[in-house]
Design a protein around this nucleic acid. Structure first.
Lengths: 207, 207, 207, 207
DNA sequence: TATGAATGAGGCTTCATTCAT
DNA sequence: TATGAATGAAGCCTCATTCAT
């Protein structure tokens, strides 16, 4: 009775159902029953496409991570004047991606946290890869005199933490500012907190 | 075998065992069995002190929250010159508390997240209360010309997010800077990101 | 191993296993384990068909009650001469039903008694509905001069009590008279205890 | 702190507490905790006086049984004219005893039923002893021409069933007729149902 | 490929009883 | 004799996964 779908479509259908279910109730709060009801398939069908509930979740998280990475472009360090704009672009694209897919935020920032030791270390790895990009940018910027003094380690954590918090609170509905506003403000804060005083002129231009 | 401890001590013993267990394996990963083994008491004893595994966890989280709140002192807004120092004090005390009790961080930032809808909303409430303090301080600061322009809502989220991230990464072991260093750096960033340019002279004094 | 049975059959199989188990050991003496062993299914299967051990028991009792009610027909009060025969028919049908299903008796009269306050009040309700029928019949009979004087309330309780006791003792094996004998004798007693002296001629006819 | 009581008083205190507790919630619904709270003693104290919750319950039931037996006097079969009065006396005393101690009814008729196979057979024994008395009286009465024809076995079960039902419903509150009324009516029914027609004149005298 | 009934290990909680003080 | 903290066997229910059709 469920319209015959190709293997890929059926798989996608299950992934989307799981996304909604995990997003709504978290990993532990979601039962396989919830997912198959949402997808409108039988229990056995689920295991035709995924090895386990956990395997599906892992896949979901990995996918989210890849999508985030994909929108973060390396910054062209040759042209100083363009750097702020490129940073801004990265922030904007990542933020847009996640804000447009609130469930991704919920799952990545909340369900995926504290699942178990194995998973936590994988998650840490993900964050580290993103952090490295930020760190790399900052270090480079300091060497070039764009970025002001300060501990790059800590600074990058603060940047990531800020972004995570903004996204998470946005998802929670506590703070429903429009995307554009968020991006602008984050950008302003980031630059204030990081830019070398002499660079403020570039900053103004962009904002 | 051990009616050696007073009721209060036994309770404390269980709380500490639970703290370790939850900290190590998260709420779902921790069985009552783990807690009682850790504490060295019988199964029934656990339920003599707590209604359920969940009730104990709730108590733990509530307790952490209360301890954090307790170290955050209201800022005396009369003496402008002292404000940065008082902010610094708050950051320092909260940070110290959590860094000295890494399990608190793990539980509050990770296990407690995404547990279920009910709990999430309670957690959100907690964060809101802390956010309100930050927001209040920033707003007041702006009116007095201490804090620069910018969206207070977003700024406060960034500040909290930064702190959370630093603490969490510290717990994860990714970033094991000494307490003093963290506090200083956070303070520097916070002020850079928030202070009105004219206030920089006060900032220098403190750092 | 057995997806041999239809959902309805499996359900019935479980009901019968439960009937035997409850009949043999009472509600508290019966574990879910007993029922599933008796039925030869796995633990989870039980909960596939019933919400809980208690829910199954409730259903059983409700079902017994419905079956008893179903055999008790309203008495046609137009034809005086037929009334005794119709009363006799009701007694006979109810008695037959229960004697043929001794476990029903055990469960309804014994296991179900004193289970808890909620259940007791439901049971009371059941008995009241049956009592009302008896009371109604007696009152009507008195108005028509068929039934002799006497407190209808008390009389109806005695009638029901007599029947309950006979059935229960029959189940206990204390008194294993054949069904026909029991029905006749009950009928005789009931009529002696209730009939108006002038009605004795009708009574003789039937017996 | 509980006023020093003699062993016997403390025991009695526990028995009364248990009577109330069992009466209110049944055997299974009553926890040792309920009894000791009601009695105001410590947990260990309970086991100083009774081997187990069950042992206490058994004792209670045995005691009820003895008290009922004690009020049922043998009937002097010499003087025909006095027999109805003596029967009436027995009914009256037994009824009075139980109606004055509603908890006894609840426990004996409800909690004690269906407890387990062992107990059920003991209970059956009790009832048999009482039934034997009734049966004996009826048989004797038939031989002397006082009691009419009919199966004594069945008749005696009906009598006991009637009494049990009246008492039970009285306890349940469904039927709160005054003691005197109940006794009279039962007596009337019993005699109607059992007496030889020629004996009606004696009956009238007593009522 | 799809179904959904069946499985059973796993985990939570209860409560009668014990025992050190 | 009294206490009450501690015990742990027992029992209920859940839910991810399997498998016969």
């Amino acid at each position: 009775m469920p319209p015959r779908l190709s293997k890929i479509e059926r798989r996608q259908q299950l992934i989307e159902a799981a996304l909604r279910a995990f997003g709504a109730k978290g990993f532990h709060g979601t039962q396989v029953t919830d997912i198959i009801k949402e997808a409108g398939v039988a229990r056995g069908t689920f295991y035709l496409y995924f090895d386990s509930k956990r395997a599906l979740f892992d896949e979901l998280v990995e996918d989210i991570y890849q999508r985030v990475r994909a929108v973060i472009k390396p910054i062209n360090k040759k042209d100083i004047g363009k750097i702020p704009g490129e940073i801004l672009g990265n922030i904007e694209r990542a933020t847009t991606l996640l804000l447009e897919n609130p469930l991704l935020i919920k799952i990545f920032f909340s369900d995926a946290v504290g699942l178990d030791a194995d998973f936590d270390s994988k998650l840490r790895e993900y964050y580290n890869l993103i952090l490295e990009k930020i760190r790399g940018g900052l270090t480079h910027g300091q060497r070039m005199g764009i970025i002001g003094e300060g501990d790059v380690e800590i600074l990058s954590l603060c940047l990531m933490g800020s972004l995570k918090e903004l996204l998470y609170q946005h998802f929670l509905g506590t703070h429903k500012a429009p995307l554009k506003k968020i991006v602008e403000e984050v950008y302003r804060i980031v630059l204030h907190a990081t830019l070398h005083p002499d660079m403020v002129k570039y900053m103004r231009k962009v904002t």
